[in-house]
């Protein structure tokens, strides 16, 4: 028999345990507040470096809560966490490199 160690069977057969949903709703409230805050920023700040930085920061925080809590990555072993995060850091590098490249194309034409 395969050992399903990742499942916590805390119940006897036939008995259904009480739901543990506090952390889920807390994450939902955080995500909603951050999205509402993004809307506020969208209509109160003028376009510029500060506005873009706030949006990027909010997005990273939201991604942290979705991946960490909803996808449960925060509670996995370290090697899995790094196996996911490391490739994404290289994507950020690619993004920054090609944004600069785009700026050069604009200057060149």
């Amino acid at each position: 028999m395969a050992d399903h160690s990742s499942h916590h069977h805390n119940t006897e057969p036939g008995v259904i345990a009480e739901p543990q949903t506090k952390a889920i709703w807390k994450t939902f409230i955080i995500l909603s507040v951050l999205t509402a805050f993004e809307f506020l920023i969208a209509f109160t700040l003028h376009a510029g470096f500060l506005k873009t930085s706030i949006f990027v920061l909010m997005t990273i925080v939201k991604a942290f809560y979705i991946v960490g809590e909803f996808m449960h990555l925060k509670h996995e072993v370290k090697s899995l966490i790094w196996a996911i995060i490391l490739p994404c850091i290289f994507v950020v590098w690619l993004l920054l490199a090609l944004l600069m490249e785009g700026g050069f194309i604009f200057v060149a034409r």
Binding site: A83, I84, P87, C88, V91, L94, L95, L98, L99, M100, E101, G102, G103, I105, F106, R109
Partner: peptide, 21 residues
Amino acid sequence: ISDTFTFSALLVTYGLIRFSF
């Protein structure tokens, strides 16, 4: 993770083209 790369490629392309306009 592989799907992340595909979506990243699309969004990075958006950034590159936007900055070149």
